[in-house]
Design a protein around this nucleic acid. Structure first.
Length: 293
DNA sequence: AGCTCTTCCTGAAAGC
DNA sequence: TGCTTTCAGGAAGAGC
């Protein structure tokens, strides 16, 4: 499932082959994941691809009007979210078309940008250039660009479970289930802890853990779960470094205790019950101490 | 505010 | 073996 490192990997791949090229036509298959399918065919032909950027889990293709564009007055962004199984990459027309490929953007040099998405949980939409800022404001901070003060402030006083807040894209953008669990394991924090109850040292461990995990995962070109491959079609390698995610029943890399799985914030959550003591256990310990006093 | 449930969709895996 | 059922999951919306 593409999260920040996987999306970053796709974006870096596209960045080497897309900018400077022009979209000449658009072909669509199923369109239920596209906000306004007709607008793609109307507004994109003739546009230059200026830049490819990532915002959390969103991909932004910045499209300048170009001389042949039909609405030359406006800069447009094509915003793509890969959902669970989305993939975006450039192929030659004669290359085999992967099943569930639903959008083809033909370029002036004959190649085509293709969007493939088995489950179609992805999203595709056009945003006028002057509205892009507003779109981004609804999202939280980039976790790799968040200072300690900002990080603590975002979580301060929140009574929600830390896992729920890490998954909430309006708090931080780009973290999903895998990297939330990996970061919490690294920081030795149970996913069901309430953010407001985290001590300053725990918050600092968590912030650093998120940075470490995401940077390392980007270096490894993401985790290949659910058949994730980068824009060139190569799998990532970070799944070999997973310490918690999808490791139920396997020994914790730190203490050997069996990794457990529980539903937290509506998601499968993997953690070490010893390194990441659950909040109810902490409560019980506190109570016991009080009774003794 | 924050939790749970539901919806979207497909393929893998489990159940029979 | 082969068919049927269940489940996972990012995000958004409803209801509590």
């Amino acid at each position: 499932m593409p999260e920040l490192p996987e999306v970053e990997t796709i974006v870096r791949g596209l960045r080497t082959v897309l900018p400077g090229h022009t979209i000449v036509s658009v072909r669509l298959g199923k369109t239920d994941f596209i906000e306004d399918p007709a607008a793609l065919g109307e507004l994109l032909p003739g546009r230059h691809i200026e830049a490819v950027e990532r915002m959390g889990k969103f991909i932004r293709l910045a499209l300048s009007p170009g001389p042949a564009a039909k609405s030359p007055e406006r800069h447009i962004d094509l915003i793509v979210h890969l959902g669970m199984t989305g993939w975006l990459g450039v192929r030659r027309p004669e290359d085999p078309v992967a099943p569930h490929t639903h959008a083809f953007f033909e370029l002036e040099d004959g190649r085509e940008l293709r969007y493939t998405d088995i489950r179609r949980f992805g999203q595709m939409r056009l945003v006028a250039g002057d509205q892009f800022g507003a779109f981004g404001e609804k999202l939280g901070k980039e976790p790799l660009e968040t200072s300690a003060a900002e990080f603590n402030q975002r979580l301060a006083g929140r009574r929600a479970r830390i896992k729920a807040l890490l998954l909430d894209q309006s708090v931080f953008r780009g973290i999903g289930n895998i990297y939330a669990d990996e970061s919490l394991w690294q920081a030795r924090i149970h996913p069901a802890r309430l953010a407001a109850n985290l001590k300053p040292a725990e918050l600092e461990r968590l912030r650093k853990a998120i940075r470490r995990v995401l940077l390392r995962a980007i270096e490894d070109r993401g985790s290949s779960i659910s058949n994730f491959v980068d824009a060139e079609g190569q799998p990532g390698e970070y799944q070999q470094r997973h310490r918690a995610y999808d490791r139920e029943g396997k020994p914790c890399f730190r203490c050997g205790t069996k990794i457990r799985r529980a539903i937290v914030a509506g998601r499968s959550s993997y953690f070490c019950p010893r390194c990441q003591p659950p909040p109810w256990l902490k409560r019980a310990v506190r109570k016991a101490r009080k009774v003794r006093v």
